[in-house]
Measured scan of single mutants.
Amino acid sequence: LVRYRTISKIPQITLNFVDLKGDPFLASPTSDREIIAPKIKERTHNVTEKVTQVLSLGADVLPEYKLQAPRIHRWTILHYSPFKAVWDWLILLLVIYTAVFTPYSAAFLLKETEEGPPATECGYACQPLAVVDLIVDIMFIVDILINFRTTYVNANEEVVSHPGRIAVHYFKGWFLIDMVAAIPFDLLIFGSGSEELIGLLKTARLLRLVRVARKLDRYSEYGAAVLFLLMCTFALIAHWLACIWYAIGNMEQPHMDSRIGWLHNLGDQIGKPYNSSGLGGPSIKDKYVTALYFTFSSLTSVGFGNVSPNTNSEKIFSICVMLIGSLMYASIFGNVSAIIQRLYSGTARYHTQMLRVREFIRFHQIPNPLRQRLEEYFQHAWSYTNGIDMNAVLKGFPECLQADICLHLNRSLLQHCKPFRGATKGCLRALAMKFKTTHAPPGDTLVHAGDLLTALYFISRGSIEILRGDVVVAILGKNDIFGEPLNLYARPGKSNGDVRALTYCDLHKIHR
């Protein structure tokens, strides 16, 4: 019993810090008490220290592992850092350059016999395009090294910054494609005289377009951006097909006994025919423009016929181009109408809503002055909100995010209106959640004399007048207030005048 009563005193000691020596009952000389009392004092002292730490809000209350900052290894790049964003855009520009100039170089340097010394005699450094290609190869190699040090988000939505895990993730992902696209074939085969082989191998750079397509997928929600990307894709495919079309004609031209190829026909049409040795002929500019003209006309199913396939190889390629053109029509131009419709969806919704308003007016036989006010209010409210119901949009977000959005939407009023000066951010967040926005066209009466005042109004834009009878008592403008002081009276009061809008007004109100 003594032991039980001794232990039962522990909660009292913990909360009230009572010393055991003052209790005459606990001072009985028993061996059990002498053993338990020192333990009680020690526990009391420890609990006292913990309570003191909690009340003082000291940093040592938290466990040590929670006080440590997340460790980022040296030379690790955050995937959302500004440097990584700028670097990704730079790589994107280099990939676009590669997609345009690599097929052009591979096709127009394929057994090209233009006048001038061969590239091997001039030297590697004197070729501007080769120098640019070398810079692109170096940048792609540097990009691989950067990807080995860039964080990523795993399946659990955690940012991984450990170098080993980053390397394994990159090896399992895009490393092989990036490595093949970054191989400097110019340096590996330079001086061997195989410019045709170098041009063909350099087309491996186009593998990076797969990554670019995935990154550009984030802009699919913007109709104008999608339309622009589709047109660029169409032009890029036409450019690639033009390079292939020229390569076919250029390879067949020296081996044909009869002059029936499209390059021969082009030379005869523009007065620059090929001679018996295969030299001469149109310039590279004429060849490229004509090839691009043929691919565009074939892809769009126009086909004027002034550039036509004559050999079997050219006919087979033309059939493939027609098939590609039909697929592009289905996948690209078939979506253009939907994209344009999405661009004008706001206008369509406006006309639909206006039609419903006019049908309501016609069905209920609203008189002319009231009908005009109804239409003007709808037009003004639509121009202010673009038909978007803010309350319906915010309803799907958590309250903390709703408060931040409301604070942002009402920031101008909260910053410049005098009653809100000096208020804490928590108070402003709470008030912003209570605001209701209303609009009024010129001549609209917001409050009639004798109406119950259940709200306090803040003028965000425009001006109003307060009338008693036919006498203008006051004219209020931006950041002015009218209405009933909230919670100042037990019952809502009545208006002693009319409140009429002089201009288009936007008002925020808080109800009782």
Rank of each mutant, 00 (worst) to 15 (best):
K436W: 05
V86G: 05
G426C: 04
A338S: 06
V226C: 12
L92N: 01
F228K: 01
Y80D: 05
Q269H: 01
A213W: 03
R74A: 08
L94S: 13
L241P: 01
W240A: 01
V95L: 08
I77M: 06
Y344M: 13
P82R: 05
A330G: 03
Q415F: 14
A247N: 01
H408F: 04
H239E: 01
G334R: 07
L90T: 07
Y288C: 01
A69W: 12
L110K: 14
V321R: 01
F304C: 10
M256G: 14
L428Q: 13
G305S: 12
S220E: 05
P273L: 01
S331R: 03
D444E: 09
S297D: 11
Q415L: 13
T203F: 04
R218D: 03
H169F: 05
A181K: 01
D404R: 02
A119Q: 01
A224Q: 09
Y97N: 01
H351Y: 13
L67H: 04
A99P: 01
I284M: 11
F108I: 01
S331W: 12
N154T: 11
H439F: 12
I146A: 04
T385Q: 15
S331C: 08
F435Y: 02
S337V: 05
V136H: 01
V447T: 02
A182D: 04
S161I: 11
A213E: 05
L370D: 01
A403R: 04
R371S: 10
L94M: 14
K84P: 01
T424L: 02
H79C: 01
K436D: 10
I183K: 01
L230S: 05
E376R: 13
H416D: 13
N386M: 10
Q353K: 04
D444A: 09
S161L: 05
D186G: 14
N265S: 13
K287S: 08
A204K: 01
T352R: 12
Y65F: 06
I405V: 08
I244R: 01
T120E: 13
L94T: 14
D286E: 06
S258Q: 13
G173Q: 08
L227G: 01
A392L: 08
D186W: 10
L176S: 11
P442E: 05
G280A: 03
E114A: 15
R373W: 01
L292S: 01
V180K: 01
M251I: 08
A330V: 02
L263F: 01
A430G: 04
E252A: 01
L201H: 01
L134E: 01
P128Y: 05
L292T: 01
S308W: 01
L176C: 13
I77C: 05
T102N: 01
D404N: 03
P184C: 01
F333K: 03
M231K: 01
V336G: 03
A130D: 01
F378S: 06
R356W: 07
I340Y: 08
M256P: 11
